[in-house]
Design a protein around this nucleic acid. Structure first.
Length: 810
RNA sequence: GCGAGAGUGGUGGAAUGGCAGACACGCUAGACUUAGGAUCUAGUGCCUUACGGCGUGAGGGUUCAAGUCCCUUCUCUCGCACCA
């Protein structure tokens, strides 16, 4: 069989789609809201390596879905763009001196060409790149809105620092103590930085998840990342000091069991509450803790360490004098940086108390446990139970004890209900060149002054050297003529902010710019925003679970609060595509040599084979290994479709059997495409073609619907086959075929006959036949009688159109 | 350690509690040929000459009937990891 001429077919149709702007989306007001869909792909970072086979997976899925929706009468917005600021281009610039803009734009061109070669139905007039001034003008504009609302602030605190990337990192960018990008060990560094107050939105980011159609694991990861906990804050008096020590606990019911206190080594009280005798030991411990990275503090600190400060606190519930220690198992960044230690009911406190011989008092007993409770417990238990050794709270179950102790604390004015989050504010500044300049100046008189909105964009200046200074300042700091400016407020001398924004900034809102990409007066026209938003389906990798997807939701809520978007959640439905692994079942990587280049596949097998194969590999959401042999199978399917199309088309009616197969196929392909189960839809089309390709001539009524269904999957071939059927207008505008339920049903069914659950025989019967008749037929079968002879029939189960199960005894 | 997800032929995978292995790859045999990443036909879970038996990580359970529901357990992947 001749290889079908995919090279010429694909070129021909791609050109036609481009020339005719076939997939341009317009805000047609006559289309009701429920017939509009915004289907979004996670846009790529245009790396120097070019497109990877992983990219087209999600892109093909959304493309098939969009083409399917259009054929079913939806107005579809399906755009593509580029996440174009980022470190690789800048690192390349450092090595070669080539401006990152030059390499980035070259990479964007290459990516665009590669993406177009796969025949995706994007509206290319809406393409955006986050690094162009007309785009980042609005990224800077959003930053100014954050600043004006007090959601962007300067801070100087120890942060995560990647010595290789020479920049600060957000908590979300650190995995296992390593830089998420380059896997270098992260250190701690104290520098001035910009921080976004994402914690102000913690509750809304948490609550908003409930209404989203997202994979549960992703929602759970965001919930865990936000890490809301409820408890109480309690003030402890410090013996001989004016100030009180505030702690946070989720278990105020265990207050009577607090036998010591622990401060984080960074806690502001440490210095002045430490007694003279303890000064040297405490100072040494604090210094050692400061030198350790977070990784060392957690990973290596299996053994609890700490030092007594010499100070004592007073337990407010019983007046007991308890020692105050410092230890690095208490984190300065969570709660108040200080805890009450209840060793009997907290593993960490238990370990610490055991290591330093501190007292342990049981204050919670397991349900049913009987006293006496005056012994030192021999193990730690964090489980709920009822209060003991707790004065008037004795006997209360844990939940009630928590409520009553909290109420009692509030009444006495020594504590109150409190909520804490694991989520930290978002470290937003990068000490690098290739990012959006932060649009503020530092004025000696006026302090931090935002630029006027009319002065945006604040352009990235040219620099001689792209190399980061490594001192915590970006290369921009080395350009005095750019740094030195005048204050927009007082007109006096001022210095520009030299930090830039992280890569996440541009990707936080790109889905909004697609709606109105060329608008010079607003980041989006409100009418256009209302027309399309929110995004109906967002497809991308799961690696952004707590990065992009959390940041975007945060910005979107802020934009909602200032009234420029109409929903407070941007992405209604999210689907994560699985990873495509190498043929060796390992993650694709240059070093393993198992990388598959999409260009090679398109060249050798065509874009349609590539598309259909990636969808046929298995469910979209799971990881699966690439197999070029498997791709050949799909390629054969398309070749068979081509070969079959060369048979004469007949105006005759299809046989009843073929008609039934057609309607079954339409039903399955329709349902499976709608639910993104592309692999089984393709399988059904294969079954159909395997039958129809046996015919000598093709009934038009059989072949046309097949070509239409194939078109979203293999659009080039679909268009070509449609044209060969004598149609002038493109197949992408044709209505999706309908099926008749009655024609999908079989007239005859094979009935399985089981004896005690084992299949012994089968027979055919008219569909929908009476159960009695099925039972009688089954019992009369000779093979069945062999198995039932001499035995007592206890029960006969009949499932209409499916089976008869005869239960025998003896 | 905690949390989530997944374990089905030689391979990718399919199965509203009702015929396990659809579809595809690979393999075996045959046909054909303009020798191609061909095509066509038949076969292909394991054991057994057969009758039949056994089979969805392992072990229990519920049910007339379990890959599917419940319990226990193992392995792998991902996320979090002293968050008081």
């Amino acid at each position: 069989m001749a290889k079908y001429p995919f090279e010429s077919i694909e070129k021909k149709w791609q050109k036609r789609w481009e020339d005719e702007k076939t997939f341009a989306a317009a805000e047609d007001p006559s289309v009701p809201k429920e017939k509009r869909r915004y289907v979004l792909d996670m846009f790529p970072y245009p790396s120097g390596a070019g497109l990877h086979v992983g990219h087209p997976e999600g892109y093909t899925a959304t493309d098939i879905y969009c083409r399917f929706l259009r054929m079913r009468g939806y107005n579809v917005l399906h755009p593509m763009g580029f996440d174009a600021f980022g470190l690789p281009a800048e690192n390349y610039a450092i090595q070669t001196g080539t401006h990152p803009e030059v390499t980035t734009m070259a990479n964007v061109d290459r990516f665009r060409t590669q993406i177009k070669s796969l025949g995706f139905s994007y509206d290319w007039d809406r393409e955006v790149s986050t690094c162009t001034p007309d785009y980042y003008k609005w990224t800077q504009w959003i930053f100014l809105q954050l600043f004006k609302r007090g959601l962007a602030y300067e801070s100087e605190m120890p942060i995560n620092w990647c010595p290789s990337c020479k920049t600060g990192l957000a908590n979300e960018e650190v995995k296992d103590g390593l830089c998420d990008r380059c896997h270098t060990k992260v250190t701690r560094k104290r520098i001035r930085q910009w921080v976004l107050k994402i914690t102000a939105y913690a509750d809304r980011l948490l609550d908003g998840l409930d209404g989203l159609d997202w994979p549960e694991p992703i929602k759970l990861m965001q919930r865990n990342w936000i890490g809301r906990s409820e408890g109480a804050s309690v003030h402890f008096e410090l013996e001989g000091h004016e100030e009180k020590l505030e702690i946070y606990t989720t278990r105020p019911d265990t207050l009577f069991g607090a036998t010591y206190m622990v401060l984080s080594p960074e806690h502001p009280y440490v210095e002045h509450i430490t007694t003279l005798e303890q000064k040297a030991a405490v100072a040494a411990y604090v210094e050692a803790a400061a030198r350790k990275s977070d990784l060392e503090r957690t990973d290596l600190a299996k053994e609890k360490t700490g030092v007594f400060t010499g100070a004592y606190a007073i337990n407010p519930v019983n007046g007991a004098k308890i020692p105050v220690w410092i230890s690095d198992y208490v984190l300065i960044s969570y709660g108040t940086g200080a805890i009450m230690a209840v060793p009997a009911h907290d593993e960490r406190d238990w370990d610490f108390a055991k290591a330093f011989g501190l007292p342990i008092i049981q204050v919670v007993a397991a349900p049913g446990e009987t006293g006496p409770f005056d012994k030192t417990p021999d193990k730690c238990t964090a489980a709920d139970g009822f209060a003991v050794n707790s004065g008037k709270f004795d006997g209360l179950p844990t939940d009630q004890a928590i409520a009553q102790v909290t109420a009692w604390l509030a009444e006495k004015g020594i504590g109150k209900k409190a909520v804490n989050y694991k989520l930290r504010d978002w470290l937003f500044s990068r000490q690098r060149y290739w990012g959006e300049p932060i649009p503020v100046v530092h004025c000696e008189k006026c302090g931090i002054v935002p630029l006027d909105e009319k002065d945006l964009p604040l352009l990235l200046p040219e620099v001689k050297s792209y190399a980061p200074t490594g001192t915590g300042e970006s290369p921009l700091a080395n350009i005095p003529e750019w740094v030195n400016t005048t204050c927009p407020c007082c007109g006096g001398p001022a210095k520009r902010e030299t930090n830039t924004m992280p890569q996440w900034a541009g990707s936080c809102w790109y889905y909004l710019r697609y709606l109105d990409p060329k608008n010079a007066d607003a980041f989006v026209d409100p009418a256009k925003e209302k027309y399309w938003m929110p995004v109906d389906l967002y497809v991308g990798g799961a690696e952004h679970a707590v990065l992009h997807l959390l940041y975007s939701r945060f910005w979107h809520k802020v934009l909602f609060d200032i009234g420029v978007v109409s929903d407070d959640e941007p992405f209604r439905r999210l689907v994560n595509q699985g990873m495509i692994l190498g043929e060796d079942n390992q993650k694709m990587s240059k070093s393993r040599g198992n990388v598959v280049n999409p260009d090679d596949i398109v060249r050798d097998f065509g874009a349609d084979s590539m598309r259909v194969y990636e969808m046929f590999m298995g469910p979209l959401q799971v990881s699966k290994p690439w197999s070029t042999a498997g791709l050949v199978g799909v390629s054969r399917f398309l070749e068979r479709a081509w070969a079959t199309s060369e048979k004469p088309i007949a105006g005759i009616a299809p046989s009843a059997e073929h008609l039934k197969l057609l309607h079954k196929t339409i039903k399955k392909v329709t349902l499976d495409t709608d639910t993104l189960n592309f692999n089984t839809a393709i399988s059904q089309m294969m079954i159909f073609l395997n039958e129809v390709s046996k015919l000598d001539s093709l009934p038009r009524a059989l072949w046309e619907p097949f070509v239409v269904m194939l078109a979203p999957y293999a659009p080039h071939l679909g268009e070509e086959l449609w044209e060969r059927l004598g149609h002038a207008a493109g197949v992408s505008k044709v209505a999706w075929p309908a099926y008749e339920e009655a024609l999908t049903l079989d007239d005859e069914k094979e009935i399985v006959v089981q004896v005690n659950g084992k299949i012994r025989d089968r027979f055919t019967a008219t569909a929908g036949g009476a159960e009695d008749a099925l039972r009688e037929t089954a019992l009369a079968l000779p093979k069945v009688r062999e198995w039932t002879e001499g035995k007592q029939i206890a029960k006969v189960i009949v499932v209409r159109d499916k089976l008869v199960n005869i239960v025998v005894k003896g």
